[in-house]
Nucleic acid binder design. Structure first.
Length: 311
RNA sequence: GGUGAGGUAGCUCAGUAGGUAGAGCAGUGGACUGAAAAUCCAUGUGUGGAGGGUUCGAUUCCCUCCCUCGCCA
């Protein structure tokens, strides 16, 4: 029994494909998406609709309040619970999404026992604001390995390594494992020709707006959320907040959402390329019939003849 | 048809008193171990509209043509 992890950049067509596959195979999806976890954020995160969720069950979606803190560790814990539950019930789990960090955590594990600490973070942020470059100097003495990997301007990462040292007394870089990928998992990387992906992104953003993205964000805006909420730092939400604040115009806002989505997709692709052992499928040069055939081979290989298949 | 301005990177434009060109945006490559749709780093060769002339040498000067925009008929 192997567990597929289907990764692909935003708008590549994961949901459509999974729905097709669900007609032939009996499996459930463990979403691997850091934004679809939030309640009230449906249109902008391209969360599967209720109907889609009926066709194929998605887990780890729509279960966190937008003001709640969420991170990899929580994801890792929640997903492993669901994975085990599905397996013990004889249901094949399929991970699917686009958050690379989460895929790393699932397949390689995570350093344990060093949670983020808001108090420490705020303190570090204040120091950084007043004395630029100071934290970087401290990092050099505290965790030279990390110091060598991290750029002076990457204050977020500098703070994280300092935070870990302050809370633990051990350099975080010492605790980081170099674990190989767990062979239990197989990454399947769905991609498309860049130009086509860009067209799909543009169309999808337009359709989000038609479905009421601005109204959805306005609701959150009126509820008093702001960019200090991690959830709001999401493409489509952050830009509309700026529009509602009057910082940018509507047309500009839409263009920015598209641009930022394109850039995000590029970063995702760059991340997924690192999985050298992944099965890569370019959806631009394969038709649906072929893709279904490829997956039937993969799933047969992973699950055997009588696991997952619908008769 | 006449006349003026212009045609330079995917887009908007700059510049070269003749020595094959550079900004912004877009794009691209990369990093990533408890904020990750986040955060950070790096990255500009393009038939200078086409053809011809002058010149050691033309994107730059001259001629012809094509195209775009404005104005006049």
């Amino acid at each position: 029994m192997r567990i597929p992890i289907i990764l692909g950049p935003t708008a590549v067509g994961k949901t459509e494909l999974l729905i097709e596959l669900s007609k032939k195979y009996n499996f459930q999806i463990i979403s691997m998406d850091s934004r679809q976890v939030y309640k009230l954020m449906n249109i902008g995160t391209a969360k599967p609709t209720e109907e889609e969720n009926k066709l194929i069950r998605h887990h780890l979606i729509d279960y966190v309040d937008p003001e709640e803190h969420y991170d990899v560790n929580k994801y890792l814990k929640d997903s492993k619970i669901i994975e085990e539950k599905l397996l013990s019930n004889g249901i094949a789990p399929v991970y699917a999404g686009g958050t690379g960090l989460y895929a790393d955590a699932i397949t390689k594990g995570l350093v344990e026992g060093i949670p983020g600490n808001d108090f420490v973070r705020k303190a570090l942020k204040n120091i950084d604001r007043n004395q630029s470059g100071y934290l970087y100097k401290i990092l050099k003495t505290v965790d030279p390995v990390a110091f060598n990997k991290i750029h002076l301007n990457d204050s977020k990462r500098i703070s994280r390594y300092l935070e870990a040292f302050m809370l633990n007394g051990i350099p975080l870089s010492k605790l980081q494992n170099n674990n190989q990928m767990d062979k239990k998992y197989q990454i399947i990387f769905l991609n498309r020709d860049r130009k086509e992906l860009h067209n799909r992104i543009s169309k999808r953003v337009d359709s989000m707006i038609n479905k009421g993205l601005f109204e959805e964000v306005l609701k959150l805006y009126k509820m008093g959320y702001n960019k200090s909420n991690g959830s709001i730092r999401t493409i489509g939400y952050s830009e509309v907040f700026d529009y509602l604040d009057g910082t940018i115009g509507k047309e500009e806002c839409i263009e920015l959402i598209k641009r930022n989505t394109r850039r995000y997709a590029r970063r995702q692709i760059i991340w997924f390329r690192r999985y050298v052992d992944s099965i890569q499928i370019n959806l631009s040069d394969t038709d649906t019939k072929n893709i279904l055939m490829i997956f039937s081979i993969i799933f047969n290989d992973f699950w055997g003849d009588n696991y997952g298949r619908k008769i």
